[in-house]
Design a protein around this nucleic acid. Sequence first.
DNA 1: GAGTGGTCTAGACCACTCG
DNA 2: GAGTGGTCTAGACCACTCC
Lengths: 238, 238
Amino acid sequence: MKNKFLFIYNELVRLIQQGKIHPGETLPSEHDLCRQYDTSRETVRKALNLLAQNGYIQKVRGKGSVVLDHSKFEFPVSGLTSFKELSNQLGQDFKTIVHELSLGLPKGGVEKHLQCKPNQKLWKVVRSREIGGERIILDKDFIREDIVPELSTSIAEESLYSYIEGELGLDISFAKKEIVVERVTQEDQEYLDLLDHEQVVVIRSYVYLADATLFQYTESRHRPDKFQFVDFARRTKA
Amino acid sequence: MKNKFLFIYNELVRLIQQGKIHPGETLPSEHDLCRQYDTSRETVRKALNLLAQNGYIQKVRGKGSVVLDHSKFEFPVSGLTSFKELSNQLGQDFKTIVHELSLGLPKGGVEKHLQCKPNQKLWKVVRSREIGGERIILDKDFIREDIVPELSTSIAEESLYSYIEGELGLDISFAKKEIVVERVTQEDQEYLDLLDHEQVVVIRSYVYLADATLFQYTESRHRPDKFQFVDFARRTKA
DNA sequence: GAGTGGTCTAGACCACTCG
DNA sequence: GAGTGGTCTAGACCACTCC
């Protein structure tokens, strides 16, 4: 077995999610976990730090690792989940409609966002997301063609991410996001069921691979009444 | 000197922020840093992991630690910054107006948010934030009185956080946040310069101390045209 | 004082990149 | 093959909590 600390992490996550250990209770001590998994303390600590980072526990010096109430924030665990995962978790009816899938040179300032050469061809994918019968999210993706050479409508209808990570084996590692509110555009009106909303919430994401190359820029435009963003921020003292 | 890894972290942050090492370049290798700081590799790695977590570098196996372009997202580094720090960084004229500072029993569901006993007295602080001559943020804070026994208008005008962390020596360690868009309330209209906006962006924050006690609930209501939220999300594979 | 987590060491082996 | 980061070990000492 490789990645012992990930194994321990997953076991503990399972215990917490199944409610075997309740919020407020403490995990077995690091020493105990060492014996339990027949491993060294630093390895156990790596697993525990991952739990802490992801909001499952809080480590308290002199006491132990206290299990937090993770349930309230059970879904969108900040950040990189794709629409498909998200809608699966919500258990709602959902559908993706592909409006555009094209390959071309960057237009309208996209090359600035992607910091790529002007002759770098980009995939442009425009999709709206229907949940509960209403089209409430408009996603515009721009993806570097030198990194993802092939795309199809069926891939765009399914999940870009599972294709990129699964089929292509690329390793998405982090994203920078900005959230703002903007006036609706003509495009929004065309592709979304806006009711009488005049503004949309816009999430601009810059997605990077494990080798630190920026390969995708996404603009995700949400009808405000259906928008929700959840964040778990741990203090890292300077 | 204690906390060797924090020392190394701070040194490297300084180097990056001063532009001594440019985005795209790599840091000295872990081995070099070990010699340079006369320390063990795990300690160096702790410092580097902190840099990676905070978006300064990306570690690439077989190559090195690549410096990222941190400048584009230089401010609100996700999460726990207070209004005062934020407005200082933006370098704008700002002012805090205290509308209410009272101590009482929880009303209107606040005790649910704070998961405290119904007889737990709470501080209620209502403040609006003026930037560039306009009141654009309304902050409503609820704080457990058993943890923060004393508050004053002058503290609320300055910074709650620096008082709580500095004077009281409490250790704020993480926060859970939810961002949604809501219709304006009468209170919003009273305390904010809303122009003709009918909606506000609401950030609900649950703030925890290092010993995992939830001690504060905050509702921060922003005029949508001035709202911005920045997030750096690193993938932690399950 | 016993038990907890926080930091640190000095090694080891592996997987990966690049010339 | 040389250099890089990723994982892991078996210890050590410290700071803190709780009884």
